[in-house]
């Protein structure tokens, strides 16, 4: 019974990780950009929502409005990031890594300077702060629902629309796409903007679960990187499976083997890479 609760709880964290990581994996796959500022974007989402709502409990409508506003700001930050990365075309992942690491430090330290270095959080919106089935927090159910909705939308766009087909094509063969007259740069930009918007949105979604503090950016960045490495790059399915697996490892896994809890996540990632050096759904690149 308690393992079932663990597993369900793993879904909640998996859903949050999916929203965070899906942008990272698409940006890597599409733009060939290793965005180490992704964790800082998540953190920015949390801090901006905290600044907007002031740490008080608010109505669901106000909360959702703030979340959308934050996502829009994330899109704007994605534009800045795209512009910053533009001069680096053809210079490889490590230069992008250093640039985005520098930008991540600037962004997170700026946020800590504007708010403070203390701990902050936001309670769930009114109506979602209760519990279900006796003692399971309703907000976590809502996070799963949000993950399903966002996952569904992403899947639908990716698999069922022309825009999604262009994105997939741009991953597989950008040269061909350009040759048939598609503006590949615009496809790339839209993926970047959407990915950054999702990252900041995840920061709001995760606010009642992971409190705001110094170092939050690198903590979630490492989790997101693990998700996309396990799943394989540029694959929505990979991000889903990776996020769900990490969620279960962190709940069912540590409940079954508590004495190994500290090693478990990295050991699982290493094991997946030994089994398939490009992740579960990844292609060799």
């Amino acid at each position: 019974m308690s393992l079932l609760v663990n597993a369900f709880d793993g879904l909640a964290f998996g859903a949050l990780l999916f929203v965070l990581a899906v942008g990272l994996t698409l940006i890597y796959g599409m733009l060939d950009v290793l965005n180490l500022a992704h964790g800082a974007l998540y953190m920015a989402g949390g801090y901006i929502a905290y600044l907007l709502l002031g740490g008080a409990s608010v109505s669901l409508g106000l909360w959702a409005g703030a979340a959308l506003l934050v996502a829009a700001l994330g899109v704007a930050l994605g534009g800045v990031l795209s512009a910053a990365i533009l001069p680096l075309r053809g210079r490889g992942h490590l230069d992008q890594a250093l640039l985005t690491l520098g930008l991540a430090i600037l962004l997170s330290e700026f946020l800590l300077g504007v708010v403070d270095r203390g701990f902050h959080t936001l309670p769930p919106p009114d109506g979602l702060d209760g519990s279900v089935l006796g003692s399971y927090p309703l907000y976590r159910v809502a996070v799963i629902a949000a993950g399903l909705v966002i996952g569904g939308i992403v899947y639908w766009i990716f698999e069922r629309t022309r825009a999604g087909a262009l994105v997939r094509a741009a991953v597989d063969d950008p040269g061909m796409l350009a040759a048939i007259g598609v503006n590949v740069a615009r496809v790339r930009l839209s993926v970047m903007l959407a990915g950054c918007g999702l990252a900041t949105f995840a920061g709001v979604l995760g606010l009642p679960l992971l409190n705001l503090r110094a170092g939050l950016d690198s903590e979630v960045l490492v989790l997101a990187l693990i998700v996309i490495v396990i799943g394989g790059l540029a694959s929505i399915r990979g991000a889903v499976v990776g996020a769900l697996l990490v969620g279960q490892v962190q709940t069912v896994g540590v409940a079954l083997a508590p004495e190994l809890a500290a090693y478990l996540l990295f050991a699982v990632m290493a094991a997946v890479l030994l089994w398939n050096p490009s992740g579960m759904f990844g292609r060799a690149r």
Binding site: S2, V5, N6, D9, F13, L209, L210, E219, Q250, T251, V252, V254, A255, P258, A261, A262, L265
Partner: peptide
Amino acid sequence: QILTPFGKTQNFQPYLSQ
């Protein structure tokens, strides 16, 4: 005695359930 990984635990539910 239940020990949780230091600085890496984002969720105590799996440990509380023990």
